[in-house]
């Protein structure tokens, strides 16, 4: 899609370019303008850092989720898996393991979860939302069993320091998320795997007929997602400085919302990785603005839901308008 937009920018009239941009872009710009007028501190460096930090973890979940949604799938287990991996790392650190070993263990957990999701969805063709709902239950349950429901704290401050550190005034987590975006972008738009992701969502049979092991690629997408989620647990621990089984519950909703806001559809392998970045920013800016207005976190979720519906309605109307115009 990025290629197509660049290409359209070079060759096509501006209207064609505008049509390819998801509706959330306009909402995002609108929100920034409104918040900037309403609150002069919105445009401050401190607030940008806040929005960046807020976005980084969500982006880490939403980016691989984009790949899954491109294959016409869904992963409801990312929030629970994130919590579980955080619990695993924290528990092992407290038990005296080194950081690399603890992270490796979390990666292993991610690998297993991704393999279960991937094999059931990719090879057996089961509906992704129920399969991943099941693994969500498994992960939540396992976190509960490990922690007995209590938060774990008192492990190495290295993670928090890492989370709070900056490179040239840019928070490190933002750089990490940007790096993940760069890698996934390369993977999606410049490798065979990326092509196959679009092909699975669009026409999996065609991929089979091209002699590709489409089921394996399909499984790989879930593995990739779960492994990224396992790594993201480091950011989670850095942010909260403690691990709690239910801390990340619900993050899968925001991740999915960000992807859908960014214009990625559950059908035909249509979507855009950078759109997800826009979606994440929209959610973070909204939450930031609502924080300033001291809206309670529980109502903020409701607002994210409304944002999603608004964006979907905008995109639907624009699509109809462009079809009628054509």
């Amino acid at each position: 899609m990025t290629d197509q937009i660049v290409h359209a920018a070079l060759t096509a009239p501006a209207a064609a370019l505008l049509r390819r941009i998801p509706g959330v872009t306009f909402i995002l710009v609108g929100m920034i303008v409104v918040f900037a007028i309403g609150n002069p501190r919105f445009l401050s460096a401190v607030n940008f850092t806040n929005i960046g930090l807020q976005s980084s973890l969500l982006l880490m979940l939403a980016l691989p989720m984009t790949l899954i949604i491109l294959t016409a799938g869904l992963d409801l287990s990312v929030g629970a898996l994130l919590g579980l991996c955080g619990v695993v790392i924290a528990e092992l650190l407290v038990a005296g393991w080194g950081l690399p070993a603890s992270v490796a263990a979390a990666m292993l957990v991610g690998l297993v979860a991704g393999a279960v999701n991937g094999v059931l969805v990719g090879y057996l063709g089961l509906p992704a939302f129920v399969v991943t709902l099941g693994t969500m239950g498994l992960c939540e349950g396992l976190s509960l069993v490990i922690t007995n429901g209590d938060p774990i704290g008192g492990f190495t401050p290295a993670l928090e320091n890492f989370y709070r550190s900056t490179v040239f005034a840019v928070p490190t987590p933002v750089l990490v998320a940007a790096l993940v975006y760069g890698l996934l972008s390369l993977l999606l738009y410049r490798t065979r795997f990326g092509n196959y992701v679009f092909a699975i969502g669009g026409n999996k049979d065609a991929l089979h007929l091209a002699g590709i092991n489409a089921n394996l690629v399909h499984t790989g997408v879930y593995l990739l997602c779960s492994l990224t989620v396992a790594l993201s647990a480091l950011l989670l621990l850095g942010r909260t400085n403690s691990a709690h089984p239910s801390v990340a519950v619900g993050m899968e909703f925001e991740a999915i919302a960000a992807v859908v806001l960014g214009g990625t559809s559950f059908e035909k392998g249509q979507g855009w990785l950078f759109g997800t970045v826009l979606g994440v920013l929209a959610i973070s800016v909204l939450r930031n603005g609502l924080n300033v207005l001291s809206v309670e976190p529980s109502l903020q979720v409701v607002c994210v839901g409304l944002l999603l519906i608004t964006a979907l309605l905008i995109d639907r109307n624009r699509k109809q308008a462009s079809q009628n115009g054509a």
Partner: peptide
């Protein structure tokens, strides 16, 4: 322990989906 209940439920869902398929 009751903390195992969600895990067991999750496992039952996954197995039931498999059986359904």
């Amino acid at each position: 322990s009751a903390t195992w209940h969600p895990f067991v439920t999750g496992a039952i869902v996954v197995l039931a989906v498999l059986a359904d398929a």
